[in-house]
């Protein structure tokens, strides 16, 4: 009896040793944690939840979602990812403004480019100028005309200063040469939508997935969009209307801390690509207003470099105050 238990103990120890040795070679050997920097119910959360099933299947492990909200627009969560051990078990679903807007307006504790390993970009959501259904303006020209005739009277809500919607609004004002009063709301899109539906503001520059159901329900009317809306092809893009520089969108990417090992990236890259391009996921995401547009690691890094520079330049050009 005693001997057999000794033998089994030895086998167990050996197995444990062998197990860890294998684990070092084959990633992943335990659940992968994906950090959501904006709290439950946010776009980051919804997107991750939709992708996580296929992702888990591809990687043959469980995907766990962990919330680390705070810091103004998700800076705490991003910082957590940047400082995690680069073993591939802590990743993050981070939104574009963390890289392109937050560092421009305030100091952030990480390097928006070198601080992370870029894994993949899911795609994003267009920013749309929308008015109430009962509003008199049917086209973007009519609205801008109104704004031109009574400078500063027209009001436009966004989810807050330094969000992509705000920057697009500033670009539109500069391009069209009109004065529109920016009304920043916070605590998500709810208050802004409520104010627009209640007729307290004239328009909103908002993320399409936030607006889509109100547009489908006939309560809001889109006047112009940053990128073409598949469901509403008649809504013109800002570019078509001659406002070329109004081109900022919100997108989501998947990131790890800097210096993820090559064998980890070799697993993660294809897994994310397959999960993002999975037709079932694409259908789900597009139904709720997101545009799926996969980009790999290198392309994502280039995009961030480009957009960060663009936001820095536009802040200078349009004259937005930063700290």
């Amino acid at each position: 009896m005693k001997r057999s238990s000794l033998v089994s103990a030895m086998i167990l120890t050996a197995a444990a040793f062998f197990g860890t040795a294998v684990a070092q070679e084959s990633y992943p050997s335990k659940p992968i944690k994906i950090v959501i920097p904006l709290g439950p119910g946010s776009g980051n959360d919804v997107v991750t939840r939709i992708l996580s099933e296929r992702l888990g299947k591809e990687l043959n492990t469980r995907i766990e979602v962990e919330y680390k909200a705070g810091g103004g627009g998700g800076v705490i969560g991003a910082d957590f990812v940047a400082n995690a051990k680069p073993d591939g078990y802590t990743l993050g679903t981070l939104n574009s403004s963390i890289f392109t807007n937050a560092p421009v307006f305030n100091t952030v504790p990480f390097d928006p480019i070198k601080g992370f390993t870029q894994i993949a970009r899911m795609g994003g959501g267009s920013i749309v100028l929308a008015v109430r259904d009962a509003a008199p303006w049917k086209t973007v020209e009519e609205f801008l005309d109104y704004a031109k005739k009574s400078p500063g009277k027209a009001t436009c809500g966004t989810t807050g200063v330094s969000t992509s919607g705000n920057l697009d609004l500033e670009l539109l004002k500069a391009d069209a040469g009109v004065e529109i009063t920016h009304v920043p709301y916070k605590a998500g899109s709810g208050p802004n939508i409520a104010a627009l539906l209640g007729g307290h503001i004239d328009c909103a520059m908002q993320l399409w997935p936030v607006l889509v159901n109100h547009v489908r329900g006939g309560k809001l009317r889109p006047l112009a969009t940053v990128s073409q809306l598949r469901e509403y092809p008649k809504v013109p893009t800002f570019e078509q209307k001659g406002f070329r520089s109004v081109d900022l969108e919100v997108w989501f990417g998947f990131f790890g801390p800097a210096n993820l090992p090559a064998n980890v990236m070799a697993k993660l890259g294809p897994a994310f690509e397959k999960a993002i391009n999975d037709p079932v996921n694409v259908a789900k995401l597009e139904k709720i207003g997101w545009t799926v547009q996969y980009e790999g690691s290198a392309a994502l890094r280039k995009r961030i470099e480009k957009e960060l520079a663009a936001v820095r330049a536009l802040v200078k050009r349009v004259g937005i105050k930063t700290n």
């Binding site: 946010s42 709810g190 889509v212 309560k219």
Partner: peptide, 16 residues
């Protein structure tokens, strides 16, 4: 907001 997010994930369309 979380329940709204949940409805979205279920594929329903919270709205008017």
């Amino acid at each position: 907001a979380i329940l709204l997010g949940a409805l979205t994930i279920y594929g329903l369309q919270p709205g008017p």
